[in-house]
Amino acid sequence: MADFQGDVTVTADGVDYPAAAELHSWAEDSAEETAAERAVDIADGLTDWNGSIDVTGGEGAAWKVMEAEDRRLVMPDGRVAPFVVNRRFFGTGVLLITGSAEPPF
């Protein structure tokens, strides 16, 4: 559906962390759905998104993002969306994330 690759800001419990993101979104799909029905799903916000973020501060900053109660991804144009962390890569700032709202890109 859509892809984004570039710089973002991650806000974790009110603290901003610069990060690089690689994100992907797609509409819910069913083999039985027509193209028109899929278009309605997209318009209704029935999309999923996920990807990875590489928090500039490295492992320490990524750990703070992971432990935060409130996590938000802020796009360069100001759009914002909450997300959950699915996995982290030890020794790096890389986190695999899944959006918990409409894609912000």
Rank of each mutant, 00 (worst) to 15 (best):
A21T: 12
G6T: 06
T98N: 07
T56M: 00
D54Y: 02
A12I: 03
R88P: 00
V84T: 14
F105M: 07
L73E: 09
K64M: 08
A19V: 13
D48S: 10
A21Y: 06
G93H: 04
E37H: 06
G14T: 04
S52P: 00
D77Y: 02
V15R: 13
F105K: 05
G6W: 02
T98W: 01
I42E: 15
A68W: 10
V80S: 14
E32S: 14
A2T: 08
G6Y: 02
E32Q: 12
V15M: 04
D16Q: 11
T11Q: 12
R71Q: 09
P82E: 11
R87T: 09
G58A: 05
D41A: 09
G6N: 04
G6P: 01
G91P: 02
Y17S: 07
T92N: 08
A68F: 08
Q5A: 14
F89K: 13
T34H: 03
E37G: 05
E33A: 15
S52V: 14
P18S: 08
L96S: 10
A39Y: 02
P103G: 04
A101H: 04
K64N: 14
T56C: 00
D41P: 00
M1Q: 11
D16M: 00
E32D: 14
S52E: 12
T92Q: 10
E102P: 00
D13N: 15
S25L: 05
G58T: 12
G93L: 01
T92Y: 07
P104R: 10
S52A: 11
V8W: 03
V80C: 03
D13I: 11
R38N: 03
W49M: 01
P103A: 15
D41T: 08
D54Q: 09
W49Q: 04
G6R: 02
T98C: 00
G45E: 12
E69T: 10
V94E: 06
D29S: 11
G14K: 05
D54K: 05
G45F: 08
F89E: 15
K64R: 14
D41R: 15
N86H: 06
E102I: 06
V85W: 05
P82I: 00
F89H: 11
W63K: 12
D48R: 12
R38M: 03
T56E: 12
D70S: 08
G60S: 11
F89C: 00
G58L: 06
V8R: 02
P76W: 09
V85C: 08
S30K: 09
V15S: 06
L73N: 08
A21F: 07
E32L: 10
A68C: 07
A35V: 13
Y17N: 06
A101P: 01
F105C: 04
H24F: 12
W63E: 14
F105W: 13
T92W: 08
M1S: 14
D41H: 15
G93W: 03
V10I: 15
T92L: 01
W49H: 05
K64I: 00
S52K: 13
N50L: 02
W49T: 11
H24G: 07
R88M: 13
D3T: 15
A31L: 06
Q5S: 15
A36N: 06
